[in-house]
């Protein structure tokens, strides 16, 4: 009897959570497609595809999304490559824990402040206020994040596999190419995805460094929301959250199938 109640309670909680998680997407969809939704009607009087046609017509939203995607792609490639190399060097360092703790530090300081100081640096080095500046600033944060993710990759097992390969005649480059990259592919793919998201979703750094000149998708959504244009803000938000969500659900299978995870289980 007690068991039956507990399992029913678990089911109610699980479904309640599922609804709570899906609800925001529904809210955005309503916001984007509703037409003439007067207070206090529970449902809109009609539906409009205007937001969608605005998107398809290559409007400002799509333009911003393209810019965001290019920046995010560059940020993820740059930060993950750098993080791969440095996290391996950290994993074999003497004071590895103390050094790895440093990767957390940038997350303790507001991006507004980090952005402000990097902007000063970029200004003085002549790289101010462009997409490049935004890219560089986001890369610093993404890099620290990728190092945090990669710390889990460098298990004693993976390092020992490098040693085993060296014993079989592999150079450092060959160890990377033949062992570490393929064996860590799942974690690396995850890091690429997460650093891409970090840049794709970033508002603060793009605002402080871009200074309004680099209109990324979050900036565009923010502007629309500030101007009270809920329809464009909602459509832009859908464009912002749906692609990573779909990609994530697909990638989850890939990560679960990662050979390294299988062996360590």
């Amino acid at each position: 009897m007690i068991r039956a109640t507990a399992s029913r309670r678990a089911a109610v909680i699980a479904w309640g959570l599922a609804v709570l998680i899906v609800l925001p997407y529904a809210v955005l969809a309503f916001g984007a497609f509703a037409q003439q939704w007067r207070y206090p009607a529970l449902l809109p009087a009609g539906w409009s595809m205007r937001a969608w046609t605005a998107l398809a017509g290559g409007g400002a939203l799509l333009d911003a999304a393209g810019r965001s995607a290019v920046i995010a792609l560059a940020v993820s490639l740059l930060s993950v490559t750098a993080a791969l190399i440095t996290s391996q060097a950290l994993a074999i360092a003497r004071h590895r824990e103390r050094m790895q703790a440093l990767a957390l530090l940038p997350f303790f300081v507001s991006p507004v402040v980090i952005g402000m100081s990097l902007q000063q640096l970029l200004l003085r080095s002549g790289l101010d206020h462009g997409a490049l500046g935004v890219l560089l600033a986001q890369s610093f944060i993404a890099y620290a994040y990728a190092v945090l993710l990669m710390n889990a990759l460098w298990s004693p097992t993976l390092l020992a596999m490098g040693d085993a390969a060296a014993g079989l005649g592999a150079s450092k480059l060959a160890i990377w190419r033949e062992v570490w990259l393929p064996a860590g592919a799942g974690v690396i793919a995850m890091a690429l995805f997460q650093t891409f998201s970090l840049s794709w979703f970033d508002y603060a750094l793009a605002r402080v460094i871009g200074g309004g000149r680099v209109v990324t998708l979050p900036i565009r959504v923010f502007e629309a929301l500030s101007a009270g244009d809920l329809r464009v803000a909602s459509a832009g938000s859908l464009l912002l959250v749906l692609p990573p969500a779909v990609a994530f659900l697909l990638a989850r299978r890939l990560v679960a199938a990662s050979p390294l995870l299988k062996v360590s289980q």
């Binding site: 959504v221 912002l240 990573p244």
Partner: peptide, 19 residues
């Protein structure tokens, strides 16, 4: 589904909150 909210930036969360 539990992973989806991890991909929900502040700007969008604020928009949902407003609505």
């Amino acid at each position: 589904l539990l992973y989806l909210p991890l991909a929900f930036p502040g700007v969008v969360a604020a928009l949902v909150a407003v609505q």
